[in-house]
Write a protein that binds this DNA or RNA. Structure first.
Lengths: 146, 146
DNA sequence: CGCGTTAATGAGACTCAGTCTCATCGTGTG
DNA sequence: CACACGATGAGACTGAGTCTCATTAACGCG
């Protein structure tokens, strides 16, 4: 499964204390395959008999998002979720069937932002792009099923 | 102020009944300058002594989003908001200071989606792009203040 | 290695958005 | 004009996320 070390190191390097609950959560997150919701982490923690309070889960997610070790995304349904990721600017493609994610860079977006400025006069400070679709595996599965 | 007619017509044409609460809400939405949150509409309705239940506000927003007369967006803070808009595919630039919005087309995005497919093998079904920044007016105000 | 500072924790109360139910109302149709 | 059925409102309900506060334990320092 995934390696929890990067999450722990990210916390440590940012001056946060490395505690048992945070280590447990890092391991749980590393095991997640695609995106995950806060509630799922809470459930996962409980099912493994890791004593981690609900408040701590939310706090840890917030901290991890702060150091860029995970990113908060919005599902089309309006729900909030998170994905573990590298702390450089990029975006995600989300499989709407299995939830797996893939990272993409924003190379093509920069010129678009310039175009936005030209068209609207806005000074662009940030953006959020989320792409939804079917991953290769699910695509194949769907073709077989249809 | 804005014209509520397009919202009402959109409902009518989609086969929804044109009722007093829906007409009131259409007028309120038409008066919104930028994006607005469901809670704000509820408050606005109450402050104008329009008798519109909370449930009805949510239901009407859902219906209007369904016919494409408004669009649901996600603020960077994770809150949900809506913007009135034309029922064609496009995106919004949001002023993070005054909340005003501007529409942009997704011309530059199509090639990017193709690039995503090439890089990841995903079949792209949809995407969501939101751009945040400062509108020309706020930009000028900020320059004066700084 | 043990101490003290202070950040982190957990339990649970709390808030707030959004959903659901169900009895009643009123729009649009025949 | 009357009827059928979609829409409404009140308020109960749910579930995510936040806050408080007393307790615990990480880690820098001597």
């Amino acid at each position: 499964m995934g390696d929890p070390t990067p999450f722990v190191t990210a916390l440590d390097r940012a001056g946060y204390r490395v505690t048992a609950p945070r280590t447990s959560l890092a391991a749980l997150i590393a095991d997640q395959d695609g995106h995950f919701k806060a509630a799922e982490l809470v459930a996962a923690a409980r099912s493994r008999h890791l004593e981690v309070g609900r408040a701590t889960v939310f706090r840890t997610l917030e901290v991890l998002a702060g150091v860029g070790a995970i990113e908060r995304i919005d599902l089309p349904s309006g729900e909030h979720a998170y994905v573990g990721c590298e702390p450089v600017h990029h975006h995600h493609v989300l499989c709407s069937r299995c939830g797996r994610t893939s990272e993409i860079d924003d190379a093509g977006l920069r010129p678009m932002m310039r175009e936005v400025t030209r068209q609207t006069g806005f000074r662009v400070d940030g953006h959020r792009l989320e792409v939804f679709g079917l991953c290769p595996a699910c695509l194949e599965a769907a073709n077989g099923a249809d």
